[in-house]
Design a protein around this nucleic acid. Structure first.
Lengths: 109, 109
DNA sequence: TTGACATATTCCTATATGGGAATGTAATGT
DNA sequence: ACATTACATTCCCATATAGGAATATGTCAA
């Protein structure tokens, strides 16, 4: 079996750095494809293809404005990633605490 | 160009569902490879290969215990993912607020 | 040393890319 | 109708899988 499709879920979709850049760029407000092209310096077809992937997994939404297509982030689709990583939060906080205690010459737990 | 290597960064490494399962399983405490195999019901070589990827991107660490290899999560490596997703937090909170206000019959912003 | 146990690696293959180039399609202005 | 603008899609290809099977490596026990 090959690797899972980039369109299989949000985790696979955001594995690609350019798609993360696009999402970050869209975090401010909705933007047309051409604006993304100028902003990130990618080829237009490349941007369109990345947007397609993001659209398929629900990470972005679109609306037409004349000849332009305005894309915006759908933040709800990012939440599952946030929630999953959050399950490890207590671990790194604990780790940081240990480092701190060690630095202060105390006994670690 | 093909897709980036799974070992290129944590984002690519956790795109694979089984690797996320392994990390979650290791979140409690360190475990031997055989325990992961039993727990997740995967083939041993498969688990070893996933662990190699996780190890290369720093998501797990190992120590030997006799013939067993005990793997544990390195939570620090998950933080960047958490931080990146967190930059969208205000967006979904805002979105939820709008939904709530609409449900209460108020004007949306 | 030999055998058993625990894990890692190698070989194989079908599959899904991401970028570049070229082309298709939709909407607007005249 | 036609040219132009703005995107989307298709074709091609080098590359990196993930799983299965087989094998190699490392450690302990007798």
């Amino acid at each position: 079996m090959a690797r899972a499709a980039t369109t299989s879920d949000a985790f696979n979709a955001v594995a690609e750095p350019r798609r993360r850049e696009i999402l970050s760029f869209l975090a401010g407000r909705e933007h047309a494809v051409g604006e993304i092209v100028l902003s990130l310096g990618l080829e237009q077809p490349s941007v369109s293809k990345h947007l397609r992937v993001l659209l398929e997994v629900g990470l972005v939404e679109v609306r037409r404005d004349g000849r332009r297509m305005l894309y915006r982030v759908n933040p709800e689709a990012i939440r599952p990633l946030h929630e999953w990583t959050r399950t490890f939060e207590r671990l790194w906080k604990h780790q940081l605490l240990q480092v701190k205690e060690r630095a202060e010459g105390k006994r670690s737990v």
